[in-house]
Nucleic acid binder design. Sequence first.
RNA 1: GUCUGCGUAGCUCAGUUGGAUAGAGCGACCGCCUCCUAAGCGGUAGGUCGGAGGUUCGAAUCCUCUCGUGGACGCCA
Length: 544
Amino acid sequence: MSIEMELKEVLKEAVQKAFDISLETSSIVIETPKNKSHGDYSSNVAMQLTRQLRQNPRVIAQAVMDAMRMDSMIEKVEMAGPGFLNFTLSKNRFTKVISEILENKDQYGQQKPNGIRVDLEYVSANPTGSLHLGHARGAAWGDSCARIMKKAGYDVTREYYVNDAGNQITNLALSLNARYRQAHGIETEIGQDGYLGQDIKEEGYALAKKYPQIYLEPNEKNLQFFREKGIEFELNKIKHDLDEFRVHFDVWTSEQKLRDSGAVEQALQTMKEQGYLYEEDGAVWFKTTELGDDKDRVLRKQDGSYTYLVPDIANHKQKYERGFDEIVNFFGADHHGYITRLKASMTALGKDAEKLHVDIIQMVRLVSNGEEMKMSKRLGNATTIHELCQSVGVDAARYFFVSRALDSHLDFDVELAQKKTNDNPVYYAQYAHARMCSIEKQAQDIPVADSYELLVDDKEIELMKSLQEFNKVIIESARTRQVHKVCHYIQDLATKFHSFYNSCKVINKENLELSSQRLALVKATQIVLANALDLIGVTAVESM
RNA sequence: GUCUGCGUAGCUCAGUUGGAUAGAGCGACCGCCUCCUAAGCGGUAGGUCGGAGGUUCGAAUCCUCUCGUGGACGCCA
């Protein structure tokens, strides 16, 4: 049992005994005080009970303390401030974590299956161009979130929804056809909605070489050829870039296949039966205003084609039918207004919209020399995920994207990410890991201890406390999908280690007993740091 | 105008279902390698938590209003 659970049990019993009140352990808050003089752990139960008991919190705290059973791990309990109970634990309680880590190794931190099936959809960029910075943030965040949730015991499916139908794809086909024609010396303009990227130009020319003179006219039959070639080309490029970025998916859902299967019409039919649709101006509308939206939305346009929302409704309907308990989407901030519509659709289909979570990814700005680089996918001059990997490396890129809360705008400082100095936080953590590996390498003739009673230095205790936090961080990060918490944990653990390193010499032939115990602590820290870095897809390097 | 983020130290940002004297990194200043990687460590300076009310034992955190700022408001995706 974790230290926190043990303390909660102790408090629960004491409150029961003192006031005959039965508390849920989940409602008891155990904190780690920032101020060292407040002990190792603290609780505010007394203050929480003030309203119910109508007594001074200090009086309540005293009564709880008097009723408390003195567990062997508790060295001291004190009442402080407005009514906090501060616990100081016996030093040997903290060493338990070392043996747990050494036993479980790379599986340490893995929580038992919690039976919750969750679907995470992220990136889902149209196959009409390379992935750029915004996608990269979504990719790094979504993938890390998947890793963390798996570690926390969730049954995770990683999903990419491919918009391989609709206008954008037709525009792509037209652009390819235009380049194809140009390759044949026929003067052709790229339409206003066309894609001007260099890659598409090259692919058009390549197709001209491979399939000469057959598909010149932009008629429907030929466009279908360019659609297929275009999607194949773009999707392969995307998969290649994601692979380089260490991002992989379990499921690639095709919009075209959803359409072909009749799932789209089926979803519309259900919504119609539920009375949410009506016709006006030759279009089919969805009464989203009845479900919290500020205006109704068109589903089928005057020209008979569907809006973007429609196949996506079918996409999400199927997620429900696939049996997920939680359905999560990571959307770019520019799709914000879309959430209400999507949730409304699920309600209209009789699904529980509460299961559908949409996390918004705030904008990324590329900053270099204090200057912002504007991005436009259509013009083809955006910084791609591949270029980013080339210039700053995958580790730094992934680290930067998950180091900030998702709802904060991110200024990605390319120069900082490129630095191989201590200005760059990713190196700080990797350096800590490399140091640990170096110690292990040099201490191969020293046995790793299995008892740790000599580890009583403040720096050692602080380090063990951080190790103890790992499980909590995983669970909390997964529950809230706040990936950056893992990043902060990594920084904290690295800091505690560097501090320990500077004041506690590990390898000391004069004191083999202490050396072998410290070596065990180093080994445990190295395992946890490597496991934590893996959660965000960053390499735990062994030497630098 | 409506919806939705953000506003915390000079800069970039954390802040544990509301908790004690608001934290970290960078930058500035002062120290530490005859010693396991100085890509490191220790220390100092720096904040009316945008502003005003309210809720309560207690507010950076919750509510209302307000100011600044980014984004979205399409029969595009």
